[in-house]
Simulated assay, not measured.
Amino acid sequence: MRLCGEYLAARDGRPTARDTRLTQAIGVLTSSFDAPGADPFDALLQVGERALEAGGLDLALGVAETSTELRQRSKGAWRLRGRALDGLGRGDEALECYERHLTLLRDSETAVEVARRIDTLRRRRECLEEAAALFPESGGPLRDLTARPTSVAVPEFTAFVQARMADPGPSDPAVRRLLDLYGAYRRLVERSGMPDPLLGGSTPVGVGGLRGLVAGRTVCLVSNASEVAGSGLGAEIDGYDLVVRCDSFRLRADGTGERTGLHAVSLRGAAPWDGPAWTQPAGIRLVFGDPAAAWRRATRQRLAPGAQEHIGDASLRRPLSDPALLGEDRRDPGTSTAFTVLRLLDFLDVSPRLDLIGFDKPGRLRPEEAEWVMERATHVDDSKMRIALR
């Protein structure tokens, strides 16, 4: 509570939305001490998470250190401590916390993300150690950088490389290898590495590739509504050549069917790359998002190796507003994922049958989207929640 008070007292300027969420979390923590049945520990972790979001890394670390002292087997506390140390550039300490978190973890999706970060920190350390070994007489200080914040390590490593470029010079094989290691290190500081850059053999596809994968196949776009899960339509849904699902979904064989031929997801929020990995098996995965930099970072961090056979490339990241495709600038940026993928499939116009299941009630699509669908519907079957566009 002292750390929280000091943080709030030192803050100046107009608060952002993230600052407000942190203040609210501190308020919840304060009130949880007197609330019957409330667990102050959960509220404490929430303060740490909100502090990370707001950029209060020192506060987040203080909260995390307190949390791990209170409960040494708390998965969330060790992950919070690792993230705070990671954000402060204290890679070796963060690595220890991530490894401690991983030993306590049973959630496979989160484990993939933590394992990726552990791999990144280890590879950064290996770059520094190999660089030091290239120059036994002068490289000793590089080994010490593994335990120092990246704010210190990066400029010192840079200075070391510049000195070696001057003497013995870029013609030396050791210097050329040093440059390779320096480039790898800087990339790993900027973003997490990918243990499998080819994602288990997944094939990138553009508009032409997607057209070829969809051509001649019957297509069904399935809603995530609870009515579908209890509909008993599972066998009919799986009978389509290509079953399309959107965002976060759950399968129930007798209601939703079990197959996913195409999974479409839209990136939302200020940091869409921080979401869980897309581990649901799918034949094709399309990720919609703008701007391009956020899209690239999110796909790097959230695509899971082997979870898809084909991945939509950058040409498919914003099909509605891209002038090379539909170019419908009037579309709202908040367009639903379901309508985005439906409009894309309709535009390709290569499927003999294009049906929607579970989108027959208000609220499943935005009003203007539902209007577009009903204007083009060729048949509506209320008994099976089906709207046919072909």
Rank of each mutant, 00 (worst) to 15 (best):
P333A: 15
E126C: 04
Y98A: 05
T103R: 15
W295H: 05
A115K: 02
T299N: 09
D19E: 12
R122A: 07
D329R: 12
L262I: 07
D382P: 04
V228I: 15
A60H: 09
P362I: 00
R386C: 08
R148N: 05
E130Y: 03
W278V: 00
N224S: 14
R14D: 10
L199N: 00
L199I: 02
S202F: 06
F347D: 11
T337I: 05
A253P: 07
L365D: 00
S67L: 06
G200M: 04
S315I: 06
D12G: 15
G306V: 08
A84N: 07
T68C: 14
D107K: 04
D58W: 12
I311Q: 06
V154E: 12
G255D: 04
G334F: 11
D167Q: 11
I26K: 01
V189N: 07
L345H: 05
A132F: 00
L29Q: 00
A277R: 04
L22P: 02
T260I: 15
E137L: 11
L251V: 11
L188I: 04
V28L: 08
R14A: 11
R50M: 13
F135E: 00
L320E: 05
T203V: 15
D322L: 08
V222F: 10
L104T: 05
G140V: 09
S321L: 12
S321C: 13
L95F: 14
L128V: 00
R116Y: 04
T340A: 10
E109Y: 05
R73Q: 15
S108I: 04
F249S: 10
L142F: 06
H379M: 11
P281G: 05
H101W: 12
R79F: 14
L389Y: 04
L142R: 00
G5C: 09
R245G: 09
M1W: 14
A324K: 09
T30M: 11
L213V: 06
T378P: 05
A271R: 15
G312C: 12
G306T: 08
C246P: 02
L178P: 00
V63P: 10
P136V: 01
E309P: 04
G306L: 13
E65D: 15
V350N: 07
D329I: 06
A35N: 09
D34K: 13
R366A: 15
L134A: 03
